[in-house]
Amino acid sequence: MRVLLALLALAAPASAQQSIEAARAIAGDPVTTPQRLTLTDIPKTTGKPTALFDGRTLDGWQAWLGYADPAITYNAGPDARPIGRSRDTGADFAVRSIDGRPAIWVKGETWGSLIHRADLSNYHLRLQFKWGGRTYAPREKQPRNNGLLYHSHGQPGEVFGTWQPSTEFEIMTGSTGMIVAVGSQLRGRTTVAFEPKIIAPHLRYRAGGREVDIVNGTPTWNVEAATDAERPVGQWNTLDLYVVGDRAVHVVNGVPVAEVRDLATIAPDGRRVPLTHGRIQLQSEGAETWFRDIVVEPIDRLPRVRAAG
């Protein structure tokens, strides 16, 4: 899907070609050799693991919903109001059984998130997810979309009336593990290569590549995962998120796909303030999704990402 969209973009108006040229200017000429990334020196836990999902209830989680019509999310007028917590959300988020085990069910029709109350820092978070069968407007014909948002802070609905400011471990078919800045005041540095065959902003994570600052609303608003390590729709996937201070490593089914460092918020006076802790959010963004086995354990260092090729 992403390759098809990129090919369409190449034949589209000048703005699409301009985005490709902007990416080329940022990252240099395309890198044709794919990298094989491996995870080494995996840290040992420094304390007792904690389950964030008890398998029976949504205790510890609080729901927030965006607009009744998700299509207005990115251009809502001044009179539009998100749903927030003004109605029961049992038809949006629930604990249900699937494949013989309990899981958190996210319907996906109304955008929003489940926010966990724990303020987390220096941790390894592991969860499993798989896609359900339903997708919803306005994204019913687009790749399935969700996300694990971490270092969340500020107010629910502060970003587009729907999410808390955060860094995103993208969960999207073809792009799981992508790094996204959720909110205009978020920043994070990573290294990239220019890849014109993927959709804008045409930047893929590459160990040893050009350094960029991820900034929402700019040509570096997200960075694609190094590779698509997701299993086919309908199968369970394991995500590992390693976070120490203002650095993080994204791992999909045992394959490291991205690293980010210097996570920060921008203060009113323009100072860059390190972002080292926060809550997690499980998104609802147009696709039915299941989550289970959500466990966090303390660590004091990150694993290493090694590149071959």
Rank of each mutant, 00 (worst) to 15 (best):
E168D: 05
I42Y: 00
G154I: 03
T32H: 12
D54P: 02
A207Y: 07
E224A: 15
N237D: 10
A181Y: 08
V192T: 10
V223W: 10
I98K: 15
I294F: 06
I214W: 04
P232R: 08
P78D: 15
L4G: 13
L241R: 06
M1F: 13
A181F: 08
A68L: 10
E224C: 09
A12V: 00
V273H: 03
G112T: 01
A181G: 14
Q128M: 10
T218N: 04
L149C: 08
K141E: 13
T265H: 03
V295P: 11
W236M: 05
A12K: 04
G309N: 05
K107L: 07
D99G: 01
E140T: 10
P201C: 10
T73R: 13
L7E: 10
W111V: 06
I98S: 11
V260E: 11
L148V: 05
V257C: 01
R210F: 04
A27S: 08
I26N: 08
D41Q: 06
G208V: 09
I266A: 03
H277K: 15
G100D: 00
G157H: 02
N216H: 11
N237G: 03
Q17V: 14
T73C: 00
T40A: 14
Y205P: 00
I115D: 12
A103P: 03
E230D: 10
V31M: 10
G112C: 06
G208A: 12
P298Y: 07
T191V: 06
G161R: 02
D92N: 14
G84W: 04
I214F: 03
E288T: 14
P43R: 06
R96H: 13
W105M: 00
T45F: 07
D99H: 05
S175Q: 14
D240N: 11
I42A: 03
D69E: 09
A94S: 11
V252Y: 02
G270F: 09
G208W: 13
G270H: 04
V223D: 09
R261K: 07
E158C: 01
D262S: 14
A12S: 15
L120E: 05
G234S: 08
D59F: 09
G108H: 02
G77C: 07
W105K: 05
T73F: 01
S19H: 09
P49Q: 00
S86T: 15
W236E: 12
V249G: 00
A258P: 02
A63W: 02
P102T: 01
I83T: 09
Q142V: 04
Q283P: 06
L58K: 06
H153N: 12
F291K: 02
L5G: 15
L8V: 05
F291R: 00
T45I: 01
G188H: 08
D54Q: 04
I72C: 04
V243H: 08
V223M: 12
R304K: 13
R301A: 05
